[in-house]
Computed example of a mutant assay.
Amino acid sequence: MSDSEQFPEAEELPAEIREAVPDWDDQYFDRVSDRLMYSYDLEKDRHAAGERWDLYGELRVLNQKQFFHPSLKYADHEAREYLFARREPRPTVTELERLVDLGHDIADDRIVASEEHFGTDVSFVLVADELPDAVSEFVSGFRDRTLLKFGYYGHYDVNLAVVAPDDEEHVSSEVADVAEAFTLWDDVTEPEEGVLSRFAKRFWR
């Protein structure tokens, strides 16, 4: 299944959405953005958390329950994802461990802990020239979830993925669903659902 079969043509999107998506000189990131643009607010060359990222994205999901009328709402819950991606020709386990620490700092800085907060993902994707065995082993076995006030204020996950496009290889941690958008050589799974709906189901399960 091609990208065009999985996602609508860009021309079908509202003009304000198309115009808000930047163009990347890096062809790989430009194609990745074509997969992410339907669900994420995207920026290029973003300076965040004290570092530069080739691609930065934010995704927000709001789950609302209501009685018989939309104005009678209750139990609103919000989930977010902050995506940071860049080229890192030779990733190391040490660098990934540093990013995990950075992820916790980002979560501490951005999450407003409350009863309305359900979950936040802080996801890092490194685009590498090759995928070292040590990196693959570290990422494949990685899972980092932190409960806020014993889960009463939700939780957050730090996610990792490393992609080697030239070798068509990648590895991702357990709940790093966004990594699928970076494997351009693979079909997107579950074609009956979009990235957003799969993301939401993971949060609300």
Rank of each mutant, 00 (worst) to 15 (best):
M1N: 08
M1F: 10
S2M: 10
S4D: 12
F7Q: 04
P8A: 08
E9R: 12
A10M: 11
E11L: 08
L13T: 02
P14M: 02
E16R: 11
R18Q: 05
A20D: 02
D25M: 07
D26S: 05
D26L: 03
D26M: 04
Q27F: 08
Y28Q: 03
F29W: 00
F29S: 03
V32P: 00
S33V: 05
S33W: 01
R35T: 03
R35F: 00
R35Y: 00
L36R: 00
L36P: 02
M37R: 15
M37Y: 02
S39D: 11
Y40R: 06
L42N: 01
K44P: 01
K44A: 06
R46N: 06
R46M: 14
R46T: 09
A49V: 09
A49S: 14
W53A: 06
W53T: 04
D54C: 00
D54E: 10
L55H: 03
L55F: 04
Q64F: 05
Q66N: 11
F67V: 13
F68R: 10
P70L: 09
K73R: 15
K73V: 13
K73S: 12
A79P: 05
Y82E: 08
L83V: 01
L83T: 00
L83R: 04
L83K: 02
F84R: 07
A85T: 08
R86I: 00
P89K: 08
L96R: 07
L96E: 04
L96P: 05
L96M: 05
V100Y: 06
D101Y: 06
I106C: 03
A107F: 00
A107C: 06
V112L: 13
A113E: 15
A113C: 08
F118E: 15
G119M: 11
L126W: 01
V127G: 01
V127Q: 04
A128N: 03
P132R: 09
V135S: 03
S136N: 13
E137H: 12
R143I: 10
R143G: 00
R143Q: 10
D144E: 13
L148P: 01
F150T: 13
G154R: 08
D157S: 08
V158A: 07
V158R: 09
A161E: 01
V163P: 02
V163W: 04
P165L: 06
P165M: 07
D166H: 15
D166L: 14
D166K: 15
E168A: 13
S173E: 02
S173I: 07
E174W: 12
D177A: 14
D177N: 13
V178Q: 03
A181I: 08
D187T: 14
D187C: 13
E190R: 14
V195N: 11
L196F: 06
A200Y: 01
K201R: 15
F203T: 13
W204Q: 15
W204Y: 14
W204H: 10
